[in-house]
Simulated scan of single mutants.
Amino acid sequence: MGTHEAAPARPQVSAGAVFFDDDDRVLLVDPTYKKFWNLPGGAVDVGETPRAACVREVREELGLDPSIGPLLVVAWTANGPDGKLFFVFDGGVLPPDRRAAIVPAPGELAEYAFVPVERARRLLSEPQWILLTEVLAARADGVTRYVESGQV
């Protein structure tokens, strides 16, 4: 019997944030390169932490310099050969002046919107909707969640 060791998995890593307005509507973005809407965020670069990537991506996508709160959900999905890890942080409630300062990245985002949670279900892919429900539950009860699922 040989002692063959498998190479460690190298999942893609992404980070994003969930933001709300004063009416408890969730901020979603419509990326030009994806079929469905999404939470703001994107890929974690080499040598970057998930939190730093979240801040950078929100700045790039929306022109905001967010104060990112606690980690709400870590999700592993079956995307790609090694899977994908998502880190979703709490961006909190954006006051009117911060909402007015949003500038969607040209060429990257078709639009953005604060939508009631029920409407988010129609804009997100099914796996992203499941992720959002976990994010909302984690935010409500203050307990970080770990989720495994199929493709997002």
Results as ranks from 00 to 15, higher is better:
Glu61Leu: 15
Leu62Thr: 08
Val58Ala: 04
Gly63Ser: 02
Ile68Val: 15
Val73Ser: 06
Arg56Phe: 10
Glu61Ala: 10
Val73Lys: 03
Cys54Trp: 01
Pro66Glu: 11
Glu60Gly: 04
Val44Gln: 02
Gly47Pro: 03
Cys54Leu: 09
Cys54Pro: 04
Pro66Trp: 09
Ser67Trp: 10
Cys54Ile: 05
Gly63Trp: 04
Val46Glu: 13
Thr49Val: 02
Pro70Met: 09
Ala43Trp: 06
Gly47Cys: 09
Asp45Asn: 13
Pro50Ile: 05
Val58Met: 05
Glu57Gln: 14
Val46Trp: 07
Val55Glu: 13
Gly47Asn: 08
Val44Thr: 09
Ala75Met: 14
Val73Cys: 08
Glu57Trp: 03
Ser67Gln: 15
Val46Asp: 14
Ser67Ala: 15
Asp45Tyr: 13
Ile68Phe: 12
Asp45Leu: 15
Thr49Ala: 02
Asp65Arg: 06
Pro70Lys: 14
Ser67Met: 11
Val46Cys: 01
Val58Phe: 06
Leu64Asp: 06
Arg51Tyr: 06
Val74Asp: 02
Pro50Arg: 06
Pro66Cys: 13
Ala52Gly: 05
Arg56Trp: 13
Pro66Asn: 11
Glu48Tyr: 04
Ala43Tyr: 09
Arg51Glu: 12
Ala43Leu: 13
Glu60Asn: 11
Leu72Pro: 00
Ala53Val: 09
Glu60Gln: 12
Ile68Arg: 06
Glu60Phe: 08
Leu72Asp: 03
Val55Gln: 09
Val44Ser: 00
Gly63Cys: 01
Thr49Pro: 00
Ala75Gln: 14
Leu72Phe: 08
Ser67Ile: 13
Leu62Asn: 10
Pro50Cys: 08
Leu62Tyr: 13
Thr49Trp: 02
Ser67Glu: 15
Glu60Val: 10
Cys54Met: 09
Pro70Phe: 08
Gly63Tyr: 02
